[in-house]
Write a protein that binds this DNA or RNA. Structure first.
Length: 685
DNA sequence: GCAAGGTC
């Protein structure tokens, strides 16, 4: 028997179908990922895994955080243990009766590692089996057949590179997480985490907040003129866009009366290029702009993918492969509600020139629709995401939009003014992808020498603005730019930072704890807070692939570095502990006491150990409120309009953070309960 | 109970 192992069910199904010309059958229950068929008289089985089926961990004697010094983890043995037990035993069972094994996991570093892990499991139970590797970068019949007719060997170098990543992440993550958690005695559920990707990401949010806090706004003045010509009104702005003093602005403003003369009128045609195909990050950014959070957008996309509506959503590539037939994609979506008609329109074209993005990768095709959906088959949010994917696809194969921009230079009593207009003349792709379309700004058709009437002058005081906080989508884009995380993990990393209480809100801000952890790490373990740690690791991994370095060498070097860092931190332990505890204490302040003006803080009842919110002026002030006993509690800085108590945010793992005011008898609560009940009824949306 | 990486 020949056994084929793939990384996921969908791939197993596809490969089995292609190699058997559609004759493969699923074996076992409805949740099974095993497909069986015959090929040239030989029995073939194809098993789909669920990503990694093995994980790395320390031996049991290192499990108790309080009993182990974090630095002991640096040299501790690292074990590989099954993380998907049923799949591990399925592999073993099947491998016993197989003489040929083909590893057909994804063609990337992690895929090679998954494959090598499986191969070593198989060698344990069946040392005589021949193990080969199939490599393909798309799931077209030609590519699959080619891969299986020219089998290769497992690339041990690539697999070792993956192992280096795994080991280094565990060693650094575990040792530093335990160090700061132990130093601050934040143990149990609410430990403080550190990691190669999460810590630099936290640092990004903290740095942005620092820029905002240290930003000194400068006053400036703007002068505008409301003008009229032939019954049409429009606004022109003084050419000096920012006057640095009120006097100067006033001098210009005082001349804004009577008439203006058009000094020049320029009309320019401008093309607006259609957007590039969706990779994960671009998709997340677009969904984020439509107010679907990254984690939710990915959850919805994965669900649509497993039901056959869209292609694989975890992808770096932004260029459609030449093997993707645009015409058949259009046909497959032509009976969809709403967007099907749009697809039919584009089916009339003779040829297609899809746009291309910056990233050419061979992992998967960019995200595109694979089937027609009806509105009643999907929840409203699923539909929103499906429609977005379809419309983006249609946009990538349609024409540029054409805009006409107009600029009028106007002289008003010697003061120069400018009016700008922008009007879409040809819709092009905007017909299919209207999401971020700007409103037309029209100007009257004036020419040089024409006169306009001044209706009024406007003088406005403004201030320079600090850079904006990151939205989740923008943060994920920034992570990609900095090389942090992967298409599959970035949204999870951001969600983890939120669940840990490090960052919160929309747009994102760091909590006091987040700021304190980031600054302590920046001072004492700089390496782990910068994207360079990842960049360096990537280089070392490349060197392992090229056999220029060994896995052992790379890890040893990393261990030496971490040991030094931990030694330094050990010396400054009490200082680090103090700093972070100050941050934690900062987050304990929930707001202002409505009866005495003191601080409402999170406290613990001495007898029961239960937490509650109470006034810092106790016993003079006895104000206290109950708190939910599970989840994180964070201040929002806002007070309830109804009852005047501070509003807090409750963070629970795996759930969307929610807000409530502290007063359990607030009249708003009834409304909240009603809202909750109706949400429950309508399902997940 | 630590990380980050796969996949559901």
């Amino acid at each position: 028997m020949k056994l084929i192992i793939t990384e996921k069910n969908q791939t197993a199904k596809r490969i089995a179908q292609v190699l058997s010309d559609g004759k493969a059958r699923r074996e076992g229950g409805p949740r099974s990922t095993l497909y069986a068929f015959k090929l040239d008289g030989e029995d073939v089985k194809c098993l789909g895994l669920r990503g990694h089926i093995m994980k790395v961990d320390f031996p049991p004697e290192f499990r108790q955080w309080q009993d182990v010094e974090p630095r002991e983890l640096v040299d501790a043995e690292i074990l590989k243990v099954p993380s998907e037990k049923t799949l591990v035993s399925a592999v073993k069972k099947l491998a016993k009766s197989a003489d040929k094994i083909v590893i057909a996991t994804d063609y990337d570093r992690e895929g090679e590692l998954i494959g090598a892990d499986v191969a070593s499991l198989i060698r344990d139970v069946n040392p005589r089996a021949e193990i080969k590797r199939a490599r393909f970068s798309s799931l077209t019949p030609t590519e699959i057949k080619k891969a299986f007719s020219s089998l290769e060997e497992i690339d041990e170098g690539l697999a070792r590179a993956g192992e280096a990543r795994q080991d280094i992440d565990l060693i650094w993550g575990a040792a530093l997480t335990r160090f700061i958690s132990l130093a601050t005695t934040r143990l149990g559920q609410r430990f403080l985490s550190v990691g190669r990707v999460q810590s630099p990401t936290l640092a990004l949010v903290v740095q942005r907040e620092n820029e905002i806090q240290s930003f000194i706004p400068e006053d400036y003045w703007q002068v505008k003129a409301r003008l009229k010509s032939d019954g049409e009104e429009f606004v022109a702005t003084h050419k000096t866009e920012r006057f640095d003093s009120q006097e100067k602005a006033k001098r210009a403003y005082e001349k804004v009366k009577g008439k203006g003369v058009i000094v020049s009128a320029q009309v320019r045609k401008r093309k607006i290029a259609p957007p590039s195909p969706f990779n994960t990050t671009a998709f997340i950014a677009a969904a984020s702009a439509l107010r679907v959070s990254p984690a939710r957008a990915m959850e919805l996309a994965e669900n649509l993918y497993s039901r056959g509506y869209i292609s694989y959503p975890r992808v770096d590539n932004t260029v459609y492969p030449s093997t993707l037939s645009i015409r058949s994609v259009l046909k497959s979506i032509s009976s969809a509600d709403v967007v099907g008609e749009l697809a039919l329109e584009l089916l009339g074209k003779d040829s297609y020139k899809p746009t291309r993005g910056k990233t050419t990768a061979t992992d998967h095709p960019p995200i595109y629709p694979t089937d027609s959906a009806r509105k009643e088959e999907l929840t409203p949010t699923e539909w929103k995401i499906y429609e977005l994917v379809v419309r983006r696809f249609l946009a990538t194969i349609s024409d540029p939009a054409e805009a006409e921009s107009m600029r009028l230079d106007i002289d008003i009593n010697g003061e120069p003014f400018v009016a700008k207009g922008d009007v879409i003349k040809e819709e092009g792709f905007l017909r299919y992808y209207p999401y971020f379309r700007k409103k037309d700004e029209e100007l009257p058709a004036l020419k040089e020498g024409d006169e306009v009437r001044v209706l009024e002058g406007i003088i406005e005081k403004k201030q320079t603005q600090p850079p904006p906080r990151y939205t989740e989508g923008k943060l994920i884009e920034k992570m990609e730019e900095e090389g942090l995380g992967t298409k599959s993990t970035r949204h999870i990393i951001v969600q983890n930072l939120i669940e840990r209480g490090y960052i919160y809100g929309s747009p994102l801000r760091p909590s006091e704890t987040g700021i304190a952890v980031a600054s302590a790490l920046e001072r004492h373990a700089t390496h782990v807070t910068t994207p360079e740690m990842t960049a360096r690791l990537e280089m070392d991994m490349d060197a392992i692939v090229e056999r220029e370095r060994t896995l052992e060498g790379v890890i040893e070097e990393s261990r030496v570095m971490l040991k030094e860092i931990l030694e330094g931190m050990e010396e400054k332990k009490s200082q680090i502990s103090q700093e972070i505890r100050n941050g934690i204490r900062g987050d304990m302040v929930l707001g202002v006491c409505p009866s005495c003006g003191g601080e409402i803080r999170i406290r613990k009842a001495k007898k029961t150990g239960k937490r509650f919110a109470g006034c810092g002026n106790y016993p003079e002030c006895e104000t206290l409120y109950p708190l939910p006993q599970s989840g994180g509690v964070l201040a929002t800085g806002e007070i309830c309009e109804q009852c005047g108590t501070p509003k807090v945010r409750i963070i629970n793992k795996g759930r969307k953070p929610w807000e409530l005011c502290l007063d359990p008898n607030c009249p708003r609560k009834n409304r909240y309960e009603a809202g909750k009940a109706s949400r429950k009824k309508s399902g997940k949306n």
